[in-house]
């Protein structure tokens, strides 16, 4: 099954910082959940198409190109922790 190394790798992918205690605790809980869902291997799905969407009456819905409905800039920035020059400010990704 899943290993502690994999847990740390996934945490990194999901941008979650886990401490030692959390890794321990989650490791056993996650293992038990994953072993439960392994049940699905019992089902023969050889000729079955997956269902990603339960209702089929929606297909390729495009939004009308209408610029009248928009948010004011101040509203858009209202909940950002850091803003600068009418932009959301964040840590640089380039060194």
């Amino acid at each position: 099954m899943i290993s502690k190394e994999e847990i740390l790798k996934i945490a990194k992918l999901a941008k979650l910082q886990l401490n030692e205690n959390e890794v321990e605790k989650f490791f056993s809980q996650i293992k038990s959940i994953l072993s439960y869902v392994k049940k699905l291997d019992e089902v023969d799905t050889s000729n079955v198409i997956p269902t990603f969407h339960p209702i089929s009456d929606t297909k390729n819905r495009f939004q009308v190109d209408d610029s009248s409905r928009t948010f004011k800039l101040e509203d858009v920035l209202k909940n950002a922790k850091n803003t600068k020059n009418n932009h959301v400010a964040t840590k640089g990704v380039f060194k």
């Binding site: 899943i2 994999e6 945490a11 999901a14 979650l16 989650f26 950002a80 850091n82």
Partner: peptide
């Protein structure tokens, strides 16, 4: 935690668990 809300370390245990298993 950038456009709204606090940093991801403020997620509770259940949210973190779900994110982990889902990502896997």
């Amino acid at each position: 935690g950038i456009r709204f809300g606090f940093d991801r370390d403020k997620f509770g245990d259940e949210a973190k668990r779900r994110i982990m298993i889902g990502t896997y």
